[in-house]
Nucleic acid binder design. Structure first.
Lengths: 184, 184
DNA sequence: ATGAATGCAAAGGTTTTGCACCCCC
DNA sequence: GGGGGTGCAAAACCTTTGCATTCAT
């Protein structure tokens, strides 16, 4: 059984923080933008995607919408509506919260973000829809969210669904676990 | 690869309902109590479990708590706090909602119920903790919740977690799919 | 000029909390 | 009689909506 089939990504890149301290917000960890240049590139690409969608659906351009997108790309990997509001308030206090709530569905519809698993408090977690499907593993100690992908599980799900007479559309799979940070 | 490793249980037992009609509430389907005698047996067993917990934690007996438990066992397989409130209101209108919200954590702590996957509207779904772990497959058409268990996926999760340096504690796995009811 | 998009504030729906009272041990 | 448990109502919390206004096309 090949180990190469696993892949993992730490959403939180700041590995220096002590793991034992519980955080108030998952997002405190996921806020570290990994690479400014990469983020800018991505923002540029996604802005294009947004514009395409806006044109296609005969919507109108809006500065607020682009500000929101910028904050998402630069600061958030996994975020709730409230996280986003809070961050947006720091960079762009002029954008109202109703606008945020009204635009999240637009970003989802344009496949720029997608709804992920619910966070620890039960709120919808959004994340960038980068095209690469992954599932989540959340550390119960440090609350960081990691991503994993395992082809064997994916395949098995399809098999199970099929055997049971279902056509699978999507799934959410979260493992709550303890990372070994503490014991290292 | 043996097929016998799959198991499935329909939470909703009323198979006569037309599948095409979307429901307002998941619970409308999961409300069909399968067998009165079995439910009473279970209630008796769980009441004992509750009493043990109450004694152990030096809490006190309460009639409301037992009423709530009775409604859970008799009417609910998968339910949100609000579902429970609504049903409770019919059988025991004298029990206040604060009491329900305050007791749900007690039932969870005593391992009588557990938090399940979030429902379609994002609310926490509780379910009886019957000791048999299972995951869920939800039909996007008829909204019924089915339970499945696949040992291969379970094992694989442990392997993945272990390889990545995590000690898994629990997980939630929901497949959103379309059942073949319509096309039959 | 038309209708999308916005900010604000008010309303909505769900869960939690404060408080006085009740009841179990 | 001490402290958990309760009901009620108020508050807290997050999200949606109404409305007048602004802005993009």
């Amino acid at each position: 059984m090949s180990q190469a089939r696993f892949s993992i990504t730490a959403t939180a890149l700041d590995q220096r923080l002590p793991c034992g301290r519980p955080l108030q917000k998952i997002s405190e960890y996921s806020s570290c933008a990994p690479d400014r240049r990469a983020a800018d590139d991505l923002l540029h690409r996604l802005t294009g995607k947004l514009n395409d969608f806006v044109r296609e659906k005969k919507l109108k351009k809006s500065e607020s919408r682009e500000k929101i997108l910028a904050v998402i790309v630069r600061e958030a990997r996994h975020f709730t509506a409230l996280d986003l509001l809070e961050r947006l308030g720091k960079s762009y206090p002029d954008v109202g919260k109703a606008t945020v709530y009204r635009n999240l569905p637009v970003f989802v519809a344009s496949r720029i973000i997608k709804e992920g698993p619910p966070d620890v408090d039960g709120h919808v977690l959004y994340e960038l829809a980068d095209g690469h499907h992954h599932d989540h593993i959340v550390c119960l100690d440090c609350r960081r969210i990691f991503e994993f992908h395992d082809e064997a599980i994916e395949k098995r799900q399809e098999l199970v669904s099929d055997q049971l007479g279902f056509v699978p559309r999507e799934h959410r799979h979260i493992i709550y676990a303890k990372c070994s940070y503490r014991s290292r």
